[in-house]
Design a protein around this nucleic acid. Structure first.
Lengths: 340, 340
DNA sequence: CATCCCACGTCATACGTATGACTCTCAGCC
DNA sequence: GGCTGAGAGTCATACGTATGACGTGGGATG
């Protein structure tokens, strides 16, 4: 019995109903698994058969309209080419998929932040936003009227500002690193800091300086988180008259740049100068010697952030702020200072 | 005159209409810029004022339902932690944003391809899919009934199969590389190939072998596109009795692994053995010496792919298949073979 | 003065789903 | 035999937008 399909479009629940000989409401009830005590098992089966026979997939726009839920959230991150944020996305997307949510990524342009209204076309239930150059809250607030009330969870952002946060414990990581270096005998430290000064970077620096104890920062520079930026700044730092014995960078890629500077100056790593990174990005093990760094659990950061956001959407409560521990990874780029 | 807002939800076009003293249809016409000859300029202004006063933003679910368009597309890529696909996403997202489309990313799990039906919750107008381990078309076709007709553009996939494609000209890149190496005097080549054999990788290998001329492949191995994979496979290749003078890798990260193998065997790059990569990922300039490789325009690949897809959605025609030229980047990892 | 048209809007409906309120049938019970 | 109640479904409506089909009032035209 070939059933002609004049409209030729995607089948709707009404088509399924006709095919199964029931009403559209019944189809809806069955497919939503809400038929206990309302529909007989035989009918349930008939509806399911009809649905799969027609290849029915519910129209999500209609569903969203009815339920007021789009089942899509936005992830705001600096550009995805960074392996760190790629990993954050991976974790977030995985959790979202498990809970039947889609993720649309909104990349801020290299820290320049959001264009006026990124929410124009996207239908969004909530936002998971990573740290940004400007104060993220203000940016989101000003993203146009109507956005003020979007459920929001922040990553790597200052806690206690009325927004749920999920953070790496960068302070602890930096503290551990400082203690390790001091233990090796280093006393004169050069700091290569990030040019973009979000909260998480300020937190790193404060924690590091506080934990230095007998050592001190004798030279400091600021550079973008790039290979070139790291190289150029390191050239200056390594030539500093204060003769630092270790170069502590805010980022692994910067540290890789520092390697190049050291080579250019004829200084060996770690014999003549130690170098440390931050993040344990893939670069850390590409360079030679492999880089001593602090691992940040990027995948888990994204996963926990997404979990908090979806909990917030479902229950109205994101749960307590989360802080994920880092881990000091000692590799070949650090050694006791040269005795000279 | 304070207007009470009992429903407290987001304002709708009906609210705007009431506020401006017109009908909902008029609001819709004005905001869609379709009022030429139907609404007086004064009324237009009144509507606009009311809209911005209330902070009205159209409900995109309702709009999608009415128009049958979600203004969202899905980007299917292997996991985003790869800088290559991160760049593809960047290009794609940028073009999409310009044309007021959102992008939701569906990451295939390390080449294991799609789970049964990734389209369940997402409302999608089309798919931009990168090369996958299995034949992508089959995978998409089997992603559940109702997906067969989704507009689709493929990246780095075999042209001429009835689906629009946007490709890197990997064949030309490999050919240029082969000619360069032969020109340097290399005759005995080792090949480190990708473990996942998508079309684009097979195309690389074919083109390379065809262009070798007087040289020949004397050793070959297959490895995943990772640092470890590259290192282990390279250990074997470099120890080959056939004594290759150059190691041609399918990927920059593999090549970085090969550096480690060379170092472990006491072979210098490029004095004792030349090494080449593919892709010009960020690793290429991190390693020392910097890597001779073929640049693939990943950002543009994503951008052109998205352009083709959106054209397909708008006009029903994606335009002709696109092939983007690669570029040989000669750096420090290649030299004439040692005279021994 | 009847006609036509134009400028300015409004009406009504459809998109596909979910769900509270309702109907109908029949078994069980006093 | 009349009443209750549960079981099995259906009805009707709302979500917010876009748009083709209709007014409506007035000025120009024959």
């Amino acid at each position: 019995m070939p059933s002609p399909q004049p409209p030729a479009g995607r089948p709707t629940s009404k088509d399924v109903a006709k095919h199964a000989g029931v009403s559209q409401s019944t189809v809806s009830l069955v497919l939503a698994e809400k038929w206990r005590g309302r529909v007989s098992p035989a009918t349930v089966e008939a509806v399911r058969d009809a649905a799969s026979a027609l290849g029915y997939r519910p129209n999500s726009s209609a569903r969203s309209l009815r339920l007021g839920r789009t089942h899509t959230v936005m992830l705001v991150v600096p550009v995805l080419t960074s392996p760190f944020f790629g990993a954050v996305h991976t974790g977030a997307a995985q959790v979202a998929a498990e809970r039947d949510f889609g993720v649309v990524v909104y990349p801020t342009r290299d820290g320049v932040d959001l264009t006026p209204n990124p929410f124009s076309s996207a239908a969004i239930d909530g936002v998971l936003a990573s740290s940004m150059a400007a104060e993220p809250l203000d940016v989101l607030r000003s993203a146009g009227p109507g956005t003020e009330d979007l459920p929001l969870v922040m990553l790597d952002s200052e806690p206690g500002r009325g927004v749920p946060t999920v953070n790496d414990d960068v302070a602890d990581g930096m503290r551990t690193l400082a203690e390790y270096l001091v233990g090796l005998g280093h006393r004169r430290v050069a700091r290569l800091r990030s040019a973009v000064q979000t909260w998480t970077f300020r937190a790193r620096d404060t924690a590091f300086r506080t934990a230095l104890g007998p050592a001190e920062v004798v030279a400091e520079a600021i550079a973008p988180l790039t290979l070139e930026g790291g190289r150029e700044a390191a050239l200056t730092l390594l030539a500093s008259p204060a003769r630092p014995t270790v170069l502590v960078c805010d980022d692994d890629l910067q540290a890789a740049g520092a390697y190049k500077a050291a080579r250019a100056l004829g200084r060996r790593v770690p014999e003549d100068v130690s170098v440390t990174g931050f993040g344990d990005l893939r670069y850390a093990r590409v360079v030679e010697p492999e880089l001593t760094t602090v691992r940040l659990p990027a995948v888990e950061l994204g996963a926990r952030g997404m979990t908090a956001l979806l909990d917030l959407l479902d229950t109205g409560d994101a749960g307590p702020d989360v802080v994920l521990p880092g881990e000091l990874l000692v590799r070949g780029s650090t050694a006791p200072p040269a005795s000279g």
